[in-house]
Simulated assay, not measured.
Amino acid sequence: MTAPVLNKKNLNISRWVLIITTYIIVGIMLVLPPVLVIIEALRDGPYAAFASMTDPDALAAIRLTLVMTVASVAINSTFGVLAAWLIAKYRFPMRGILLMLIELPISISPVVAGLVWLLLFGTQGWWGEALNRMNIHIAFAPAGILLATLFVTFPYVTRTLLPLMEQQGRDAEDAAMLLGASFWQILWHVTLPEARWALLSGVLLTTARAMGEFGAVSVVSGHIPGLTETMPLHIETLYNGYQSVAAFSMATLLAIMAMATVSLRSVFESRAHNVATGEHDA
């Protein structure tokens, strides 16, 4: 009779050790860094932190980040919905290869993507000279930043929607088709309503990734202050220029934006999980 009691006691001790260890690791790795960033941003007081973000270059970086984020989210959300619908609902040749290609940006270094865009659209690139003759600028311009951001955020909406759409099956859509509904009517009124929380979760994940992208954008942007510097690039410029308060102030703003986005995503992801398990919200 004593052995089961001892085993249960040992399991409880092990569980609490695991819980405490997890919280310690999370605190050190995930909570402490943003706290230190905020402390450094406020080192000279809130006014100095706020003043640094009203600098014209800082405002330009914030504006460019928001524009690139909205544009990349809109484009990749549209593609992601269509790609997830195609892959989930149909079987076709090289379907696995298509899915692998969509997931490629997750595994490849963003710096490599930036170099590829330079190879294609840079001044010495394959199409750079022809584009310059037409007065079209992609490398070291906002268009190049958009391409880089699109690449790194490419898979997220598709990967978020795909499991739910596969679980949905095609019965309701086939019934709607027999009743004469068009493709867009089926997608908008049949498929997406049940997948709305997963879609919002994927959109927010794409948003967070787009706002914080550094590697690919750094390569293709040219780091031109006020023109092609997003918030992450501007943070690096400020820090390298020994403007610590300004750098950490911008980093704090970016962290707050990212944390708000991730928090909203957690809510939507929970809703998506409830829908997937049959716990529909009212």
Rank of each mutant, 00 (worst) to 15 (best):
P155W: 06
W184G: 03
W188K: 15
D174L: 14
M165G: 07
R159S: 12
I186T: 15
R170T: 15
L162S: 09
D171A: 12
V190M: 01
V157N: 02
L164G: 07
Y156L: 15
E173F: 03
T158G: 09
T158C: 11
D174F: 08
R159F: 07
G180H: 03
D171R: 13
Q167S: 14
G180I: 04
T191K: 03
L162A: 08
D174W: 09
L178G: 09
Q168I: 07
M177R: 15
M177L: 13
I186D: 04
E166A: 05
T158F: 03
W188V: 15
Q167D: 13
E173N: 09
D171Q: 13
E173G: 10
L192R: 08
V190P: 01
P163I: 03
E166I: 08
V157R: 00
A181K: 10
V157E: 03
Y156I: 10
L162R: 07
E173R: 04
H189Y: 13
R159L: 15
M165H: 06
A181V: 06
G180E: 05
M177P: 02
A181H: 06
E173K: 04
L192V: 09
A175N: 07
L164Y: 07
L162E: 13
Q185I: 01
L187S: 06
Q168A: 13
W188G: 11
E166G: 06
T158K: 05
P155R: 06
L187R: 00
M165Q: 09
H189D: 13
L161I: 07
V190R: 01
G180Y: 05
Q185T: 12
G169H: 08
Q167T: 12
T158V: 07
T191H: 02
D171L: 11
A181E: 06
Q168C: 07
R170Y: 08
V190G: 00
E166N: 10
F183R: 15
G180V: 02
G180M: 01
Q167R: 14
Q167N: 14
D174E: 15
V157H: 01
R159T: 12
S182N: 04
A176F: 00
R170Q: 14
A176D: 04
A181Y: 07
A181C: 10
L164V: 10
L161D: 08
A175P: 06
L192M: 15
M177D: 13
L161H: 07
Q168Y: 03
W184T: 14
H189K: 15
A176V: 08
